[in-house]
């Protein structure tokens, strides 16, 4: 690890100000950033911790019925506090990493990093969530821009994620056996006006919506509606743990299982 300055502001304004400094970098739970620092793969001048800003922590219902999760809320907190209002999201959070990861890692950190195999991007895209930052509100459909790429500007902080709560939802993850990230993860959410299906882990373009499945499920929300549907292997990730064809196959399997579990 290289030397760096460390600040832990208590207000969002102070955090944003600190992040405007040269080589400043935001630090959430550090579950990705700290290991890269230890390997000397990253050399920030200042780390700005976002964990002590009260308005960025916690889970609550908004007036319009959405579920608001503060950007610095840990997976463990989401798992516990979203269980009643949004069990699909709580279930996803409860299976990220291991207990140590869940008690440090944050939703804002996960979405800002946008690892192509992370779980939260599937929930955000699969619900059409709104990513709220210190500067603006970004629709999930506009937010994810490929592997590790997002709509965030330099120094922009995710303060809140607002999830429209679906009628039913479920997330199914087929774990990569070593990392236990998603080899393929599928989030299915049914709303009055249609169904959304988001897939993580599979594509070289990062999280994506499976529109063919969405259309079929919006017509009839049942496993049978997915019969014969598949995603092309082209563009899927191929690595030690699975070929593109295998990942494409798992997308269909996990989608079916998510629908079965949600229905």
């Amino acid at each position: 690890m290289y030397n760096f300055e460390f600040v832990k502001p208590a207000t969002l304004a102070d955090a944003v100000a600190a992040l405007s400094g040269e080589d400043a970098q935001a630090l959430g739970g550090g579950q990705t950033l700290i290991p890269t620092l230890k390997q000397r793969l990253n050399q920030p001048g200042t780390l700005v911790s976002l964990l002590s800003i009260p308005e960025m922590v916690g889970v609550c219902k908004t007036d319009d019925g959405a579920l608001s999760v503060g950007g610095a809320t840990t997976h463990a907190t989401v798992s516990a506090e979203a269980a009643v209002d949004f069990p699909g999201l709580a279930g996803l959070a409860s299976h990220i990493g291991d207990p140590a990861v869940r008690n440090r890692g944050t939703i804002g950190g996960s979405l800002a990093n946008n690892d192509p195999a992370a779980c939260y991007p599937a929930a955000a895209l699969g619900t059409g969530a709104t990513i709220v930052t210190n500067a603006r509100e970004i629709a999930a459909d506009d937010y994810f821009q490929g592997m590790f790429a997002t709509a965030l500007e330099e120094g922009e902080v995710i303060t809140e994620v607002r999830f429209p709560v679906p009628e039913v939802s479920n997330y199914q993850k087929f774990v990569q056996p070593a990392s236990r990230f998603a080899l393929v993860g599928v989030f299915v959410a049914k709303y009055a006006d249609g169904v959304r299906v988001a897939v993580t882990g599979a594509s070289e373009e990062g999280v994506f919506r499976w529109s063919e499945a969405e259309a079929a499920l919006s017509a009839i929300f049942s496993v049978d509606a997915l019969a014969g549907l598949s995603v092309p292997a082209d563009g899927m990730i191929g690595d030690l743990h699975g070929t593109p064809a295998y990942r494409a196959h798992l997308v269909a399997v996990m989608t079916r299982r998510a629908v079965a579990a949600a229905a």
């Binding site: 056996p177 070593a178 990392s179 690595d239 030690l240 743990h241």
Partner: peptide
Amino acid sequence: LLSASYMDYAM
């Protein structure tokens, strides 16, 4: 080595 860490070497 493709599996040079616990991210890819499955224990």
